[in-house]
Design a protein around this nucleic acid. Structure first.
Lengths: 214, 214
DNA sequence: TACAGTTGAACTGTACTACAGTTCGACCCA
DNA sequence: TGGGTCGAACTGTAGTACAGTTCAACTGTA
């Protein structure tokens, strides 16, 4: 903690700001899956040059929300059963590996807090999905690997988008119950059961989601 | 296998080709860590427009070999103890999770083959590092997750670069011995030992590498 | 000699214009 | 109905321009 913490000159480029803005819009559903991001239109609307937009979109590509197709430009990613499956498989592997580890006290506390937040969100009915994902991020944090944390966050971002466009709604009671089982197993130090609970939870989630695609 | 497998029209952009070319050059050590990629110079030398180079470099950014700094442009990543540590931690988590799984026959075969390749490379003295990394990629493949395979591949690419610039040379005997122990444990189905061997191997590797940084 | 201040060349970030090649839907024709 | 043609819209790339930033060299000063 330095006396200058948080003091920082605004150091960002136009393209970066555009990328952030576009990311928000996409996450909010302003562009649907499969939609093309037309450069001239966006450039004109936002009053910037087209090459700046191009740079912004290339930055966006880093987050995985869009991909480039030759001569078609940037296209918003679209959920397919295969992608959903691959995404959840990666999640399952990471989360089971994570939960098999013995949590340090502060990690256990972070998980507990995340669960409390989730329960509160379920009660009010707002932000359930985000709390759900945040909870799982804390699980993965058990791995003590920043690189894996970041990777999981990118998976989460992608998943978050899919959930939004599929307008997947979670039933609060089920969500809380399933996560409570996980937290309980962790608290008891029953790692085998924790692994089983996580696996079951992820499996159920992917099945529910894939059902929505059909 | 269709009758048209492999038939494909050349569908790539100039920027993509430039990105591939630059990637090769960087991996080959043409640019050292911390070096800036000066746009005008590259553009002039290769006979393309500067904005095309910019696009190429943004694509390069996807692979993690360079990062952008405001008003300084693209900079080749540089190894630091922290980065090495983080990279190996992620590796260790993924590989131990992978090796704890029971391999299917074809997976066992792939691992065995990768080990044979490594041994052969050690004998001739060529391409040891690449075979080493390829072996570990096969280990991670046990997770049956394409997303994790891809993520691991990106870690590998980064690590490969660090090894090159640090001109890390591996002693063939040690390398073969350590990997043989891993393969043996897998073959015997002794997963606990396999996990221990992998962990030891990764730990030793990172220690060796970090020693070179000092 | 050490150090603060100034200056200028090199370079990045962004804008603007231009155009060849590609895509894709609309229209047409058999 | 299916294939073929056409044109508007758009991407990929080139090229020019310029304000703002960086950084190393130079200068002056204590």
């Amino acid at each position: 903690m330095s006396a200058l913490d948080g003091l920082e000159v605004r150091r960002t480029t136009t393209a970066q700001q555009l990328a952030d803005g576009l990311s928000e819009r996409i996450m909010a559903g302003a562009f649907g899956p499969g939609d093309r991001l037309r450069e001239s239109a966006i450039a004109a609307e936002l009053g910037v040059a087209r090459n700046t937009i191009r740079e912004a979109v290339r930055i966006l590509e880093l987050t995985g929300l869009v991909r480039y197709e030759v001569n078609r430009g940037a296209v918003v990613i679209a959920p397919t059963p295969e992608k959903i499956e691959a995404l959840y498989t990666a999640r399952e592997r990471l989360e089971t590996a994570a939960i098999a580890r013995t949590p340090r006290p502060e990690q256990l506390k972070a998980i507990t807090t995340a669960f409390d937040d989730l329960r509160e969100a379920a009660r009010t009915g707002h932000g359930i999905v985000d709390r759900d994902l945040a909870f799982h991020q804390q699980i993965v944090a058990l791995l003590d690997s920043t690189r894996l944390d970041e990777f999981f966050a990118s998976l989460t971002k992608e998943l978050r988008f899919y959930l939004t466009v599929l307008s997947k709604s979670e039933t609060p009671e089920e969500v809380v119950a399933e996560h409570e089982a996980i937290v309980e197993a962790i608290r008891l130090g029953d790692r085998d059961r924790a692994v089983a609970e996580i696996r079951a939870h992820v499996d159920v989630s992917v099945q529910r989601l894939k059902a929505m695609l059909a």
